[in-house]
Design a protein around this nucleic acid. Structure first.
Length: 649
RNA sequence: GCUCCGGUAGCUCAGUGGUAGAGCGCUUCCUUGGUAAGGAAGAGGUCGAGGGUUCAAUUCCCUCCCGGAGCUCCA
């Protein structure tokens, strides 16, 4: 037997094996334990099936459930098992795509009748049968002609098939009765699948194209261990409990009214407090950072959007025109045009730059009805928008200042974050050289600061590169955070300029930036981040004063008045039983309860119970409690820092 | 916008071809309570809107509005 198969392992050990050996044989040679655990292999950097024959001089790494790629592999195989089960009950179901995704997998089917929850249960149990049958995932290379025959009854697969060019290898995978056009790789047999769960079904367009056929997509997830599956399902539960639409109702934060219109938020007093605190905080922050606060109209003549190019490029996202005295007006979809007009209200000297205009600018955008979602996706929202006008030389300094601002702000809310640099897209405005300079300025600042960042190649706006900050909430979800964009377009379109040191006209650089983004989305996200338990400085009601009985109600009201004098948001509840009122305050997520009874009235103290802390209480002198509250508020301490309820599940 | 599901009291939801129910909340009364629901009584609904079928529609059918899960898109 020839031994022309030479395998190099990750630790650089080599071994020789007979021709036709597979990664499985490699694993066997290393040890039976590994052979049992192996699911697939990485061969010369490419993932392949465990039993695929190796050839030549190869580098092999065996993949087991400990490797990060393994989950993807498992879920891809789970998608096939799902399709196997679906086909058993619906032999006519056309099969679309069935890939692994971040948290699981899906498979798309073309069926006449959409799936019901009962169908999902049925498929779920049939999947178990497929797993127990322990079918091998058999890989086969086929010609296009063969494949056409194999998938003669699968129009979606045939369509995909025609996209292969003649140099590509076409592979099919079979597990028991089910055959799929698929690149692979898969786990060796269906029996290798671990615990799984089907989660939902919904329509999805074939190939994501709304002009094409609507398929029925089934989502599911799969893991190697029951524990991991349970953790994941618990996390979904946790996310549901934190849903800002549910909490928004429970805590009276916001509402929508169909008479007002979909996607339009009405802020209730409690939610307005949260928003106002954020606005006040940010104002203080940006004034310190050299911004000037401005106000511009909500409705503007269409002329301005002709100049800005919004009518040309953004019209389908704008509300329709309204006519006043023969002129057409529009609700503004962005604040930049107004700020540019303010810039142009005077002739500008280089001595004035940078000019930083900030506004809580309320904008309106048309969003398709199907995408609206609570406060997170709406048609009217307020941006903490700012535009910086500066010279090219000033850009790095401005970016550096913004990084500080972002860092300070996000840490106040307790969000860790990541940074992404989005560079020049295919279709871009402005000279290459200007782009290169801008991108290298951005990189330079990030690197100088030692900030880790990833690059979204070609992800910039057509008018300039940008920095995106993604924030990570208490249960690990990523949210769009602050963004900073350089703009090479609007300065040209508006022909804005400043007089330089040389007494010549120059074009300033314009930076768009938001920290919070949309007030609506940000507060919606915060509700979920804190699970409704806002830190003291943001809490709509900060202290609830509870007299043990009506006898102490007057003293309680006097104490509440003292708190209010100090600017602390306090309320008294003096009806029902104490137990009842404590439960009520806990459910309302009020950060502090101050209980006053005979002892407290006599000693001028309060029994302080912290939200989520249970029966642990502290007897404090009233003035001491007040100053403790004031300190906690002034420092904008997070729940965790204050020793209260942690935001983590 | 599209596919599917839904809309019944302030909230969460049950229910029916003969104009409707629960729990919580709310109001009143009793209870004066020491750390997550003390007790009782009461008020509250054009059953999302319009049209159709029917002797009769909250229930069946159609259209529209709003919400949800997704697709697509985004601050």
């Amino acid at each position: 037997m020839s031994t022309n198969l030479r395998v190099t392992l990750p630790d650089d050990r080599t071994m020789e094996l007979p021709e036709g050996s597979s990664a499985y044989d490699v694993a066997l040679a290393i040890g039976p334990g590994l052979a049992r655990a192996a699911l697939a292999a990485e061969v010369d950097g490419e993932m392949v099936d465990l039993h695929r024959a190796l050839a030549g001089d190869v580098r092999v790494r065996l993949v087991t459930d400990r490797d990060p790629e393994a989950l993807e592999l498992l879920r891809h195989s789970a998608a096939h098992v799902l399709a196997t089960a679906v086909r058993k009950h619906r032999p006519d179901a056309e099969i679309g795509f069935g890939p692994p995704i971040e948290e699981g997998f899906y498979y798309d089917f073309g069926v006449d009748e959409p799936f019901t929850p009962e169908d999902l249960e049925l498929f779920e149990s049939t999947m178990q049968e497929v797993i127990e049958a322990d079918y091998s995932f058999e890989r086969r290379e086929v010609t296009k002609e063969e494949a056409r025959e194999l998938f003669a009854d699968d129009p979606l697969k045939l369509e995909r098939l025609e996209e292969f060019d003649d140099t590509e290898t076409i592979t099919v995978y079979r597990d028991g009765p089910f055959l799929d056009l698929c690149r692979g790789p898969h786990v060796p047999t269906t029996g290798r699948l671990g615990p799984y769960k089907l989660l939902s079904a919904a329509g999805a367009y074939w190939r994501g194209d709304e002009r094409r056929q609507m398929l029925q997509r089934i989502y599911g997830t799969a893991f190697f261990s029951k524990k991991d599956l349970r953790t994941h399902l618990n996390r979904l539960e946790e996310a549901k409990k934190r849903d800002h639409r549910v909490l928004g109702k429970q805590l009276d934060l916001f509402t929508v009214d169909e008479r007002v219109g979909p996607g339009l938020i009405l802020w209730r007093p409690a939610g307005s407090i949260v928003r106002n605190e954020i606005e006040e905080y940010e104002k203080e922050l940006i004034l310190r950072h050299g911004y000037e606060i401005v106000y511009t109209p909500h409705v503007m003549s269409e002329r301005i959007f002709e100049i800005s190019g919004h009518l040309e490029n953004f019209a389908e996202n704008m509300f329709g025109a309204m006519e006043v005295e023969g002129a057409r007006y529009r609700a503004k979809p962005m604040n930049c045009p107004g700020h540019i007009c303010l810039y142009q209200a005077d002739q500008r000297s280089y001595r004035e730059l940078p000019i930083r205009y900030a506004e809580y600018g309320t904008v309106y955008r048309y969003e398709r009805s199907g995408v609206l979602h609570g406060m997170l996706r709406v048609r009217g929202f307020t941006q903490d928008d700012a535009h910086v006008f500066c010279t090219r030389e000033q850009v790095p300094g401005e970016i550096a200042a913004l990084l500080d601002l972002v860092d300070e702000m996000l840490s106040t809310f307790g969000y860790p974050y990541t940074v992404e640099l989005a560079t020049r897209p295919e279709k871009a405005l402005g000279d290459r050289e200007v782009w290169d300079e801008a991108e290298s300025q951005l990189r330079g600042v990030l690197e100088e600061r030692g900030i880790e960042y990833s690059v979204d190649e070609g992800g910039g706006a057509f008018y300039g590169p940008k920095l995106d900050f993604k924030l990570i909430d208490a249960i690990g979800r990523r949210w769009q955070g602050p963004t900073v964009q350089l703009d090479f377009n609007l300065p040209e379109r508006f022909d804005i300029e400043f007089i330089g040191e040389d007494n010549e006209r120059h074009r300033p650089v314009m930076l768009h930036r938001v920290l919070i983004g949309s007030m609506e989305r940000f507060v919606g996200g915060l509700i979920e981040h804190y699970a409704g338990a806002f830190p003291l400085w943001l809490a709509p009601e900060q202290v609830r004063v509870l007299p043990i009985s009506e006898q102490w109600a007057e003293d309680a009201r006097a104490f509440a008045a003292q708190l209010k004098d100090e600017g602390i948001r306090a309320a008294v509840r003096d009806r029902e039983s104490l137990n009842y009122r404590i439960r009520e305050a806990e459910m309302r997520k009020v950060p502090y309860m101050a209980v006053i009874g005979e002892r407290e009235a006599a000693d001028r103290t309060v029994a302080v119970r912290r939200r989520g802390a249970g029966r642990k209480q502290e007897i404090l002198d009233r003035d001491a409690f007040v100053s403790q509250l004031l300190t906690e508020i002034a420092s904008r301490a997070l729940n965790g820092a204050a020793g209260g309820q942690s935001a983590a599940p």
